[in-house]
Amino acid sequence: MDIIVCLFLFAGLFFFTGGAVGILRFPDFYSRLHPAGKLDTLGLLLSLIGLALFNLHHFSLGALLTSAKIILIVVFVFLASPTATHAIVDAGVRAGLAPWTKGEERR
């Protein structure tokens, strides 16, 4: 059981890492949003699932509900995160930020 949990957790952390590094490496604001918006969401999903599973270790109704709440967080984030991403990108567009295209300098 622990192994599965660890697997999920590490997978999640892996994606988180990707997100963080992506934010650092990508050349412009629009492309940075890709790792930030997506990898973080998935990382959160995976790691929280792992933790929810771990919480079911000592099975009881309370533990089940707690795990369900953790899943609820995931559901919530899945609704909210793309919206937030979209909001940011929308802001960028309205602010008049031109997307980076190949060959330009990093910004």
Binding site: F14, G18, G22, F26, P35, P99, K102
Partner: peptide
């Protein structure tokens, strides 16, 4: 995306567009 992120020559792989 992860592949892209960790790719050493990321800048050459990506080609943002609308």
């Amino acid at each position: 995306v992860t592949y892209l992120v960790f790719h050493p020559r990321m800048m050459e792989l990506i080609d943002p567009r609308i």
